[in-house]
């Protein structure tokens, strides 16, 4: 059974379409990144999944249950964007509260906060926390009670690079234990490395929903080859490969995915004239721009 199924979900606010026929599945253990500009419909989709707002049309199921039902809420964890907790409570009190709401033992609060590196600040008021620390409280509450589905809106916003990596390690562990994870992020490089599938929303339409390698193939964006030539052979290399001379010793070529091996062969033929070669595939930024700008099919 899928952890999350959305089929042809439509939602409009007034006359504005927020989601149009959007479909998405998340399997157990799968990590799916939901990308899109601000206002593309990501938060709307998350709120529909969580049962906070109803869809106008379409079906949503969370482990077989209707969104917002007791059964669905019991297995779903959520991290809202820019969550701010009550400044008067300590981290420990706040997490104990959420543990009780889930019917878990409030004594687990300390170990949860320890896991997110907040152990030493656990007894301080949240009002004294930095943005990154508040974000970690938010992540701590999302880990309560072995959720089957995690819906995380910008989980790493406000975190430093080391903390980001730690958060993704925790998410990887949850996915290994069978949780489905749907997360949105603007930090595309980390999404690239840490998710199994990428879904791109543009103006409420799901314009892409596939693994990164498949998206690369479909987009057929040019690949960049960066050739470093020996200093005395730069001009000849640039000429023979019909490339562009960059700074000093570098020659840049672009080619389609299916031309890649041919071009590499040509480069190899130059033998001693070449010092180094980098193959730069289209980045997720490029793919994202490509898919989100493409006219709706």
């Amino acid at each position: 059974m899928q952890t999350l199924t959305l089929s042809q979900v439509t939602k409009a606010f007034g006359g504005t379409i927020a989601l149009a026929d959007a479909s998405l599945n998340v399997a157990p253990g799968e990590r799916v990144a939901l990308l899109g500009h601000n206002g593309a419909g990501k938060s709307t989709m998350m709120k529909i999944i969580l049962g906070l707002i109803p869809a106008d049309d379409g079906d949503v199921e969370i482990v077989g249950a209707k969104p917002g039902s007791h059964a669905a809420r019991a297995v779903t964890a959520y991290l809202p964007e820019n969550v701010a907790f009550h400044p008067s409570l300590t981290g420990l009190e706040q997490i104990r509260f959420y543990l009780r709401l889930r019917g878990e033992d409030p004594r687990l609060a300390k170990s949860l906060l320890d896991r997110l590196g907040l152990g030493s600040a656990a007894s301080r008021r949240i009002g004294t926390y930095s943005k990154g620390m508040r974000q970690r409280v938010g992540i701590a509450q999302a880990l309560i009670g072995k959720p089957r589905l995690l819906v995380l809106d910008e989980p790493t916003s406000g975190l430093d690079p080391v903390s980001r990596r730690e958060v993704y390690e925790i998410l990887d562990q949850l996915a290994e234990e069978g949780a489905g994870i749907l997360l949105s992020s603007h930090a595309l490089t980390e999404v690239e490395a840490r998710t199994d599938r990428i879904a791109i929303l543009s103006k409420g339409v799901m314009v892409a929903n596939d693994s990164l390698s498949n998206l690369r193939r479909r987009a057929a964006l040019p690949i960049q080859l960066q050739v470093t030539a020996r200093p005395d052979a730069v001009d000849e290399v640039a000429q023979r490969l019909a490339g562009t001379r960059m700074n000093g010793a570098r020659v840049d070529l672009t080619c389609r995915d299916d031309e890649k091996l041919n071009r590499l062969g040509q480069i190899a033929e130059l033998g001693q004239m070449i010092e180094d070669l980098e193959v730069v595939p289209p980045s997720l930024e490029d793919l994202y721009t490509h898919f989100s700008r493409r006219p709706v099919q």
């Binding site: 906070l52 809420r73 964890a77 991290l79 969550v83 701010a84 907790f85 009550h86 709401l101 889930r102």
Partner: peptide
């Protein structure tokens, strides 16, 4: 109103409560 402003209301309403 305070829960709405802090963004904790939407979070609390996703709990089984």
């Amino acid at each position: 109103a305070g829960e709405i402003e802090r963004g904790t209301l939407s979070l609390m309403l996703t709990y089984p409560v």
